[in-house]
Design a protein around this nucleic acid. Structure first.
Length: 465
RNA sequence: GGCGGCAUAGCCAAGUGGUAAGGCAGCGGUCUGCAAAACCGCAAUUCGUCGGUUCGACUCCGACUGCCGCCUCCA
């Protein structure tokens, strides 16, 4: 039995993963704030989480996966500073806040489907759990962890011991207001809002009544409320982007453990950023904002090229993104698909199971903190080994449960469009008549339509690029 | 200022004490009417710099340099 080891940010090292309840796992992944399209940097994190989930399943665990949709905006600063991104998005696009959230929620779901990311078992919208969030704040208030300011209810982080157990930061040295105006009413620089009052004189599209007045929830409270509501005490793994360690997840832990007196999640896992060549992270506020739609779909590129590209870098390392890396992934995926087509011919001969030795190596790679670069090396080693094609095919189908590259669907070649089929037939005739000038011209025409001609021993094949 | 991360061939990138995986690009070959696809083979005496520990270091320790992230919202 090969142990599953995952890097736990709490311990800052790889630890053997063991579920709280035998056989079943509670997995919570921080979802998007739906005020704009997800960019491919965001999507890298969801690919990492998908691999995590698939590896858990591959190891035979049952997984209960919850993902939140943050559909309520939060001010970007304390007090009344900053802007609410959802309300801002609404103003920008002439829609309601609710309309913006709905639109970008659908866009997000479409993106992850294109990347072959498994859907969570439960989607939760922040706005559907406001009462749970209020109840949680009340519990904290009763235990004396909160205080009022002019703009909201705050969590007093000095009352929670081990506040920095996830971030490992030195609180005294933090510089509040290094980049933003200070809130003089806060008792400690790290204190954060649990509930915010709607600013005086302004009307928000999204606001709710509460025991403290009309307003809206603080940013961190939703994830605590939702994860506990749907996972109960089965809080195994919580993941998100690396940027969430210091603030968002640290605050989630503080408020959750303060409220319940129990340990919140056992494992915290964080994915590193995508950086564009030149070294900058991709951000919605920067010009380098690329979406799956404009970087792949509109370029006629299979979105799985991006999924494949993500496998080249370990999830805890920054991933370089450039035209070259996309080209390399495009060629790499095409090559892999062709390799699989070669061995898929042997499929009918038997229905083998995965080759034990290579399955072992593959499992060892993915179970070592999701080492996909190594897993992909095993895939190549296996395909180039001396084992039977039928066993290679059986193995690749097995590995594809983790890879999610649709390698099981390659033999179901889709029917060609009529125009392409006609050209293909004409080329076949031309070749039989040894009219190679015509045959070459027809090949170019087929290629121009986005198809690839392969002359194999079994005859001519036409495949969509 | 504090905390954290990263530096491996042309590019991307594993490895983290025992003598450098894999991918892309490139080169040579097989196949092919020619290509493409596929397959076979070749490619870093070397892992940012300088020291140290060790029989042995890309891997451990120290210093330095460069790049990046977080401390506002952020994957």
């Amino acid at each position: 039995m090969i142990k599953l080891k995952l890097y736990n940010t709490l311990a800052r090292r790889k630890e053997e993963f063991k579920p709280l309840k035998p056989g079943e796992i509670g997995l919570y992944t921080c979802g998007p704030t739906v005020y704009d399209y997800a960019h491919i940097g965001n999507l890298r994190t969801y690919i990492f989480e998908d691999i995590l989930k698939r590896v858990l399943l591959y190891n035979g665990f049952r997984v209960k996966h919850v993902m939140n949709i943050t559909d309520v905006g939060h001010l970007t600063g304390d007090r009344d500073m900053g802007e609410d991104k959802i309300e801002k998005g609404a103003a920008r696009e002439g829609k309601t806040a609710w309309g913006i959230a709905e639109y970008y929620t659908q866009a997000f779901k479409e993106d992850i489907a294109r990347l072959n990311i498994l859907q969570p078992d439960i989607w939760v919208k922040a706005t559907d759990t406001i009462s749970d969030q209020i109840a949680l704040v009340k519990a904290l208030e009763e235990k004396g962890y909160t205080y009022h300011t002019a703009d909201g209810i705050y969590f007093d982080t000095s009352k929670f011991k081990n506040y920095t157990k996830l971030s490992h930061q030195n609180i005294e040295a933090l510089q509040e207001g290094a980049r933003v105006e200070k809130n003089p009413e806060k008792r400690n620089p790290t204190d954060f809002a649990l509930w915010k009052f709607s600013p005086q004189g302004t009307h928000r599209q999204m606001e709710w009544d509460s025991p403290w007045g009309i307003g809206f929830p603080g940013w961190h409270i939703e994830c605590s409320a939702m994860s506990m509501k749907f996972l109960g005490d089965q809080l195994d793994i919580h993941c998100g982007g690396i940027d969430h360690i210091d603030v968002h997840h640290t605050n989630e832990i503080a408020q959750s453990e303060a409220a319940t007196g129990k340990r919140f999640f056992n494992f915290w896992m964080h994915g590193a950023f995508l950086i564009i060549s030149g070294g900058k992270k991709m951000a919605k506020s920067e010009e380098n904002f690329l979406t799956l739609e404009n970087a792949f779909i509109k370029q006629g590129l299979n979105p799985l090229v991006y999924r494949f590209a993500a496998f080249q870098t370990h999830y805890r390392k920054p991933m370089e993104y450039s035209d070259e890396s996309v080209e390399a992934a495009r060629n790499g995926l095409l090559h892999l698909q062709n390799q699989v087509r070669q061995v898929a011919k042997a499929k009918a001969e038997s229905d083998n199971t995965a080759h034990a030795e290579f399955k072992d190596k593959f499992l060892q790679a993915v179970n070592d903190d999701l080492n996909m670069p190594r897993a992909m090396a095993v895939v190549q080693e296996m395909l180039k080994s001396a084992i039977d094609d039928s066993q290679k095919y059986a193995s690749i189908l097995d590995f594809n449960r983790v890879l999610g590259l649709n390698l099981d669907q390659l033999d179901k070649e889709q029917a060609l469009p009529e125009a392409v089929q006609k050209l293909a037939d004409a080329r076949k005739n031309a070749r039989e008549a040894k009219d190679f000038a015509a045959s070459d011209r027809l090949r170019d025409e087929i290629e121009a339509l986005g198809y690839m001609v392969q002359d194999t021993k079994e005859g001519m094949k036409v495949i969509k690029k």
